[in-house]
Amino acid sequence: MTLVKFLATRLATLVFVLLTVSFLTYALFVLLPADPAQLACGRPCTPERLETARAFMGLDRSVVEQWWEFVRGVFTGRTFGSAGASIDCPRPCLGYSFARNAPVTELIAGRFGVTASLAIGAAVLWLVVGVGAGAVAAVRRGTALDRGLMIGAITGVSAPSYLVGLLGILLFGFTLDMVPVSGYVPFAQSPVDWAWHLVLPWSVLALLSAAVYTRLTRSQMLEELGSPYVRTARAKGITERRVVTRHALRNAAIPVVTLFALDLGALLGGTVITERVFSMPGVGALLMEAVGATDVPLLVGVTVFTAAIVVIANLAVDVVYGVLDPRVRRGGRTR
């Protein structure tokens, strides 16, 4: 399979997945025994006004039609309502939230900074902590330090993040009054406040996720340290420090970086629980708001956006591997 064809196939898959995800989301929420038009009906509501609202929101059309409008809108933009007071949703239009009176794309853009700040900071932190601990454990294999780190890693994996997060808020936020307990300050407004508000969520997310990286790094390192070329390097008299950092760690890094790319992609799509626990108005919070209000356009838009990021992260990793390793293109395995 040529590289071009490989890329084309992966892209087609991406489009297919996004279409399916958006359709499923539409279908499921249309089945829901709740009427989004009721939101827009006002108080007191009359059956006539309900009809008007339904027609305006396009809810009187079939699911397939509604979904198709959505798909078209992504590429062409959409216009709602009458000429006198039309509502424009410029492309890429991920729908228009009538409950919020705003294009979904705009709402997501407004929230993405929060999610990105949360995700990137935490990811950097857990990469450093996780890889560091894993490398140390591997080099000190079999020692008490190694066992301690690995038990710590399992413990970290087992702790529910919301529990740790909330306890962190209570301890560092309220009892010790060291860090702010909630809210978000945009980076542009004040970089210091921005970081200060994010310290706690970063730490919680990172400490729990680092465990996975610790384990992965350790096992990869052990494998590399046992490999022939490392033995050769040692035999040539290269210092142990150099062996570890230049050779073992570098090679062990490939799967770690892969995992990192995927994790980061997933986090960028929004972290429902972390954002909830720390009152962070990110994409995950937006999704929960949409669920709470049965705001179908917002829901579908955010779902598709999130799915897109996740799928793109997958795609990116696949492509990089595909370029690096022709066997992947043939459908083989990397190992």
Binding site: L39, A40, C41, G42, R43, P44, C45, T46, R49, T52, A53, A55, F56, F80, G81, S82, A85, I87, F98, A99
Partner: peptide
């Protein structure tokens, strides 16, 4: 206006 429904609507009755 149908574009702006959803508010308190007593007066509409």
């Amino acid at each position: 206006a149908p574009e702006l429904s959803g508010g308190l609507s007593y007066h509409k009755n």
